[in-house]
């Protein structure tokens, strides 16, 4: 009945993915107790999270076998937009200390602060 519409995955595949996901959860927790230096703990934790999410999307959410290309387009669009949101927003805050504001802007912000001070 449904077989000709949707691809029916084998049970063994689901169980394997489930075991791998549980192992990754144990791994990410275990790695947190090891000092990897500077920011490597965060990088490893995020890399494991991305792997886990990919497994869920590909196998549990059937993207591996989905017949429609449009679904993939929607997923890629969502991830791209999310990346733009985080990277562009973050690049502003991450570079504020590197580049000092031009003198004119500093003066202007001083005037604003002064003006607000008068109101209070």
């Amino acid at each position: 009945m449904a077989e000709h519409v949707a691809h029916v995955e084998r049970k063994r595949v689901y169980v394997t993915i489930w075991i791998v996901l549980l192992c990754f959860t144990a791994l990410t927790t275990g790695v947190a107790y090891i000092d990897l230096g500077s920011n490597w703990n965060t990088v490893v934790a995020l890399a494991i999270a991305v792997c886990k999410a990919s497994l869920v999307v590909l196998f549990f959410m059937h993207v591996r076998n989905v017949s429609e290309r449009m679904v993939r387009v929607v997923i890629v669009t969502a991830i791209f937009t999310l990346t733009v949101l985080i990277v562009i927003s973050f690049s502003d805050f991450a570079t504020r200390k590197l580049i000092p504001p031009p003198p004119g802007l500093r003066q202007a912000s001083h005037i604003v602060v002064h003006h607000l001070g008068e109101e209070q």
């Binding site: 947190a32 107790y33 990897l36 703990n41 934790a45 999410a53 869920v56 549990f60 959410m61």
Partner: peptide, 26 residues
């Protein structure tokens, strides 16, 4: 409904390391 449920699982997969494991636990 399964797609929705798995999505909520994925959100937690990211929340767990980002909230509980910041800077390591050593």
């Amino acid at each position: 409904a399964g797609l929705y449920w798995h999505f909520v699982d994925i959100v937690w997969i990211f929340l767990y390391p980002l909230l509980y494991l910041i800077g390591g636990r050593f």
